[in-house]
């Protein structure tokens, strides 16, 4: 994450900062003050992440079940080997990547359309803004329940609304349809967030350039692809990065809607099951470490492939 640079500093402080001894003292004091002010935040953030991560690294070298503590045994990298050679680990990872790619792509397309509408709209702004924030603010578990029940063949409405789908069709009986239901819930909840980020990006596109393109006789499509999208590149990439990492960690919807049945497990869910449900602290810790590493890899790939400039990024 070395690509992060500091946000620009504010206002007037730089003026009159010269290399005099007096100022150098002030610089020192400022340095001290700055460190003191960020210390509580740093300590808190590391307490809850660095220490547990170190502990996970340590535990991942053991065969260790919480319910049979006496059988604890050092196995070196055995747990990693087991995990990495297990087909379940890879199908789960693949499934997670699939969910990430599909949901982010769909969210991007729909979110962009929403952003275009909101950008142009002059009336009812408050109403739209309020509505679009409701999915954003709603609890993911609630969204999962809402869609699970909507797709249910005993109490839902989706079957009766969709043509070509039998009324008693069971969406949660096989992988393909279960995963669609899960992705619908995920996409519904997070598209508004995507569209707001894109809306901010749209605002950066200069109207003058659009006018000029129009005068030059550019079609709507040409304006979209030659003017609007290139100018929004930074906004799109930042939105994609944060949503992709979020989607990669998908857990709540799967837990609520299928509990991992029919191969719908994500890598987060698999890890949770080992550690929290099966109390397999050894191999579960190994999975935790692998999950963390894979998030770093995904982040790295996105940053490199799409050349995201994180200096302008702020997570939302």
């Amino acid at each position: 994450m070395s690509t992060v640079t500091a946000p620009r500093e504010g206002g007037t402080r730089k003026q009159g900062r010269k290399e005099t001894p007096e100022v150098s003292d002030r610089l020192k004091a400022e340095n001290n003050l700055g460190r003191k002010l960020v210390a509580p935040a740093i300590v808190l953030m590391l307490l809850v992440t660095a220490f547990p991560m170190a502990r996970a690294l340590y535990l991942s070298l053991f065969s260790y079940t919480l319910t049979a503590p006496d059988d604890r045994e050092f196995v070196g990298l055995g747990n990693y080997l087991t995990a990495l050679t297990d087909s379940l680990f890879w199908t789960t990872t693949l499934n997670t990547v699939m969910i990430m790619v599909v949901t982010v792509f769909v969210e991007l397309v729909i979110g962009f359309a929403f952003a275009m509408v909101m950008h142009r709209v002059v009336f009812a702004r408050g109403v739209i803004r309020t509505s679009i924030l409701i999915p954003y603010g709603i609890i993911t578990v609630v969204s999962g329940f809402a869609w699970q029940f909507a797709f249910s063949n005993t109490n839902g409405f989706v079957n009766s609304w969709l043509p070509f789908v039998a009324d008693d069709f069971n969406w949660f009986a096989q992988y393909e349809t279960s995963i669609i239901a899960i992705m619908v819930s995920e996409i519904w909840k997070t598209t508004p967030f995507m569209s707001l980020l894109l809306l901010a990006g749209l605002a950066q596109v200069s109207e003058d350039m659009l006018e000029a393109a129009k005068v030059d006789g550019a079609t709507w499509f040409q304006r979209l692809f030659k003017v609007i999208l290139p100018n929004m590149r930074a906004a799109i990439m930042v939105a994609v990065l944060f949503r992709a990492l979020d989607a990669y960690r998908i857990f709540d919807n799967i837990f609520v809607m299928t509990a991992g049945a029919n191969g719908t497990e994500s890598i987060s869910f698999l890890t949770y099951r080992q550690v929290i449900e099966q109390f397999q602290l050894g191999i579960g810790s190994a999975l935790s470490v692998l999950l963390f590493l894979s998030v770093l890899i995904v982040a790295f790939v996105i940053v490199k492939v799409f050349r995201v400039d994180l200096s302008n990024a702020r997570q939302g």
Binding site: T82, A83, D86, L88, Q278
Partner: peptide, 8 residues
């Protein structure tokens, strides 16, 4: 699974 060679 019992011998710890597979994930659940």
């Amino acid at each position: 699974v019992l011998s710890g060679e597979a994930l659940l």
